[in-house]
Computed example of a mutant assay.
Amino acid sequence: MAAPHTDLRTGTHDPLCLPYESWRRLYGLACVRCGGGRGLRPGGHAYTQHLDGGRLGWAVRICADCEDCPKAIESKGELTQ
């Protein structure tokens, strides 16, 4: 499992290098930020690279604990830029 508060919504990730826990986060089975599962809600998008050089967007979820954290709120603003 990734370190606590590692937010997959930042950057574009290489899908071939992602561990299993990151895939759970991309599929919305766990919080995109901390990997928890309590009170999951829509949390923006995370991106992986596509073989053609483009990006694939994943509608991810965030838990109630991270939703209230100031860093999580700041990250949400970065998603729309």
Rank of each mutant, 00 (worst) to 15 (best):
M1Q: 05
A2F: 09
A2I: 11
A3T: 15
P4M: 13
P4S: 11
H5R: 13
L8W: 12
L8D: 10
R9L: 09
R9T: 07
T10N: 02
T10L: 11
T10G: 06
H13K: 13
H13N: 10
D14E: 15
P15K: 11
P15A: 12
L16M: 07
L16S: 12
C17P: 00
L18N: 11
P19G: 03
E21F: 09
E21I: 03
S22F: 00
S22M: 05
S22C: 14
R24W: 13
R24E: 15
R24V: 06
L26C: 06
L26D: 15
G28Q: 00
A30I: 05
V32W: 01
V32C: 07
C34E: 12
C34F: 08
G35T: 07
G35K: 01
G36W: 01
G37M: 14
R41L: 03
P42Q: 08
P42Y: 07
G43R: 00
G43C: 04
G43N: 00
G44M: 02
G44S: 03
H45Y: 03
Y47G: 09
Q49A: 13
Q49L: 15
Q49C: 11
Q49K: 14
H50D: 13
L51M: 09
L51S: 14
L51D: 08
G53V: 15
L56P: 00
L56R: 15
G57C: 00
A59L: 10
A59C: 07
R61L: 09
R61I: 03
R61K: 14
A64D: 05
D65I: 12
C66I: 04
C66W: 00
E67P: 01
E67C: 03
D68M: 01
C69N: 04
K71P: 06
K71I: 10
K71M: 08
I73H: 04
G77E: 12
G77Y: 04
E78H: 08
L79Y: 00
Q81D: 01
Q81C: 12
